[in-house]
Structures are given as structure tokens and as C-alpha cells.
Design a protein around this nucleic acid. Sequence first.
DNA 1: TGACATTACTGTGCATCACACATTATATTA
DNA 2: TAATATAATGTGTGATGCACAGTAATGTCA
Lengths: 115, 115
Amino acid sequence: MSEIEKIMDNLLQEMKRGTLVLTVLLNTDESRYGYSLVQSLQDKGVEIEQNTLYPLLRRLEKQNLLESSWDTSESRPRKYYRISREGRAIRDSLLKEWQRTNSLIETMLSPEDKI
Amino acid sequence: MSEIEKIMDNLLQEMKRGTLVLTVLLNTDESRYGYSLVQSLQDKGVEIEQNTLYPLLRRLEKQNLLESSWDTSESRPRKYYRISREGRAIRDSLLKEWQRTNSLIETMLSPEDKI
DNA sequence: TGACATTACTGTGCATCACACATTATATTA
DNA sequence: TAATATAATGTGTGATGCACAGTAATGTCA
């Protein structure tokens, strides 16, 4: 991988980081378990790996943005996560901020701003 | 500051991080020096501090995404930065990725996705 | 039986920003 | 004249958080 590709990768990664939490919070209105979240996010075009998502889920639970419960009725036990009240508040704020930033970027693209 | 506010701050910060580089690259089509960039970005609603921007500018220069030149003709010397050819390529890719992510988020908000 | 899918968890390293601090010069005001 | 504000650039440290590279175990299908 060339130097410039490495730099590009880093920057893309950095950009993705900020959106991961929002993405998760936008997809846990219904209870979800880690593995299924990985699958469905990937289906939607969000590249996320297990070893990124699992620690993230646990962190969000610790911060009380997600609630969890085990389902042991099936053969393989699954840990289900669902967004909490606080999580919804955070999600909405993050969303607002995202949209604000998006407007800013659009503005920066507009012709009068480009000279 | 309450626990939840701290969490919120962290997340907002995290989200901002990924966009800083793009923001800078979108505002250096004309030569700019650090101080003026801070001012104009703040005017546009992008909160950025000197001690964040200056290291960032130097990093981007090191990565050849920005080019710099000193203007010593005025009383106070100023270091001007301008986006490079590689910088433009990176900027365009980042922008595409941003817009792609924005679409994803919009999709996640759509009713059929919310059950 | 062997390969692959499903499901969860962990430890280390690297990159980056925020915060605090430092430095110099000029302009303004007390 | 002294103090303060503004212009302008720089550095060092700490916290955070993801990616990468694993481990582990069960279920399914060829």
C-alpha cells in the first residue's frame, strides 16, 4: 500500500469513527444482538467488524445508552441490546449535530464560497 | 458536568474529529494562514482552536496534502498553506465518503426502516 | 469428518485531538 | 509608561477509541 493510500485509509477511518455510535443508536430501536447487527449494517453498506462492534456495544451499555438482556432459549445464547431512554436523547443530539455539520459542508461547497 | 454530559461531549468531539481534515481541505483552495483559518472557520460555525489547527496544518503539510510558504513582507511573518494536488484528490474522496455516509444515515431515518 | 457459519469476548498498538503552556510582536488603552 | 488585548506561531502530554489480531465454542452442511 502506497503512502498516500495509507493516509487516505487513516482519514476515512477517522471519519467513520465519529459516525459509528450514531449508526448503532439508529439501529437499536428494536433489540439486536451483536452478530446480527454486524450483518445488517454490512448489508446497508456500513463496514464494521465484530472486534469493533462488540467492544462498542459493551461500552455503550456501560454508559447506559444501551440496555442488554440474554436470550438463552435458543441453542446459542444471544445477548440482545436495545437503545435506552438516555440513548435516544444522545442519538437525537448526535443526529442534529450531524445534520448541522452536513449543512456546513454543503455551504463550503457552494460557488460563492469557492470564490 | 454530569456523567451524561461528559459522554455527550466525547461523542460530539469524536464526530467532529473526522470532519476536521475535510473542513480544512475545503477551505484552502486559496492560500490561508493558520490564524485566519481559525477565524473564518469559527465564523462559519466550526469550532476549532489554534492548538488544534496548527498541529493539524503541519501534519497535513507533512503528508503533502497542503503546501506552505512564508510571507515575511508584512510586519508579522505568516505561514500560508494551500491545498496540493494530492490534497485535492484526498478531499474529493473524503467528500464522496461523507456524502455516502450521509445518505446511509438518511436511509436509516426513513420510516420503512423504523419498522 | 471436516469446513464453514454463528455467536461472543479480549489485549495491544497507533493515531488523533483537546488542553495547557510557551513565544514574539504590535496595537490599544489606562 | 505600563498593562492588556490581539495577531501569529509553536510544543508536549494525556485520554480516548478504533483496528488488528487473536481466542473460544457450538451448530450446520457437504
